[in-house]
């Protein structure tokens, strides 16, 4: 009989039957207030009626249309919709399936666009679990231990060091120009690191970052 990997453990005993808004209902009918949102995924809540209707309608017309073989309408509509919300100038979009894949795609593009191999990441950030993304992750050793060699070319910069008590009295470290700056294709940072969300005082630190000369 098959079973889940012993490493695939659930942090709570909840066996979900259905979800609605910020609530999860288990098989016994108990309701749980879900302040995890599937790690920040269910933005409109569980099973928002409009999202459910859109997905149900699409399932009945076309489930999968491989996007380098054919074009499909939902892809055209999504590209147009993202154009309305993306920052000005970022109007060319590549789609993938997961955050890790997006990190890999960004890494690949940065290296190809600049011709330089190195990536500067900031201490404490999580960028994913695939080998390239894990190599850029510094939020915990468990994400990158035991499957070396990791991807080379990652330079870790100190980020603002938060204190263990209080939110404003931390030591701030000024990012320094790396000795390998001429090899550096890009800097990558999380606006608020998932592992340790920053207080607004870190804005001062971010403002000190300057484009490579």
């Amino acid at each position: 009989m098959a079973q889940l990997s012993p490493q695939l453990k659930q942090a709570t005993p909840v066996v979900a039957d259905r979800g609605e808004g910020v609530w999860i209902y288990d098989e016994a009918g108990n309701k749980h207030l879900d302040f995890t949102a599937g790690i920040g995924v269910t933005s409109t809540g569980h099973c928002h009626p409009k999202v459910v209707a859109a997905a149900q309608e699409q399932v009945g017309s076309l489930i999968h249309g491989q996007y380098t073989t054919i074009m499909h309408k939902p892809l055209q509509r999504l590209t147009a919709a993202l154009g309305e919300v993306l920052p000005a100038g970022l109007d060319s979009i590549f789609f993938s399936n997961s955050g890790s894949e997006a990190a890999e795609a960004a890494l690949r593009l940065a290296r190809q666009a600049t011709g330089r191999p190195n990536i500067v990441v900031f201490q404490g950030g999580f960028h994913g679990r695939t080998v390239g993304a894990a190599s850029m992750t510094t939020s915990g050793t468990k994400f990158k231990a035991g499957f070396s060699p990791l991807m080379p070319g990652v330079v870790v910069s100190p980020s603002r060091t938060l204190p263990t008590t209080g939110t404003t009295a931390g030591t701030r470290s000024r990012p320094r120009t790396s000795r390998c700056a001429s090899w550096t294709s890009s800097c990558r940072l999380s606006p608020t690191r998932p592992t340790r969300p920053r207080s607004s005082s870190s804005r001062c630190w971010v403002r000190r970052l300057r484009p490579r000369q």
Binding site: T44, L82, I93, T192
Partner: peptide, 28 residues
């Protein structure tokens, strides 16, 4: 919040309320 203007931006998670889709955006 930080006045950043990236060359490349990653997105995922909240975009589709639970369906797996992500991506990057950049200038053309």
């Amino acid at each position: 919040h930080f006045g950043l203007t990236p060359d490349i931006q990653m997105f995922a998670k909240g975009i589709a309320s639970g369906f797996p889709i992500s991506g990057i955006a950049a200038s053309e």
